[in-house]
C-alpha cells in the first residue's frame, strides 16, 4: 500500500504484513509515522512520538 508523507510529500510504502503500532520511516525526510489503524485497503497513520532520554535497550 502507498501513502503520502504528511511532512514532505514523498511516497511511503506500507508493507502488506505491517501491523498497528509499527513505525514507518519516510525514506526522504526521516519522519517516523506510527500505524494507528489498518484494514484491507486503508491505513491511518500519525506522527510517532520522538525517542527521549530514557529509550532503548
Amino acid at each position: 500500500m502507498k501513502k503520502e508523507c504528511k511532512d514532505c510529500g514523498a511516497e511511503l510504502t506500507i508493507p502488506q504484513d505491517s501491523m498497528v503500532g509499527e513505525i514507518i520511516t519516510c525514506p526522504d525526510c526521516g519522519t517516523d509515522f506510527e500505524i494507528v489503524s489498518k484494514t484491507e485497503d486503508t491505513v491511518e497513520m500519525k506522527e510517532a512520538e520522538s525517542v527521549g532520554e530514557d529509550w532503548g535497550q
Binding site: M19, V20, G21, E22, I23, E34, A48
Partner: peptide, 10 residues
C-alpha cells in the same frame, strides 16, 4: 505491551 512495535514484538 508495547509502545513501538518492532520485529521482536511481532
Amino acid at each position: 505491551i508495547y509502545d513501538k512495535l518492532r520485529f521482536e514484538e511481532k
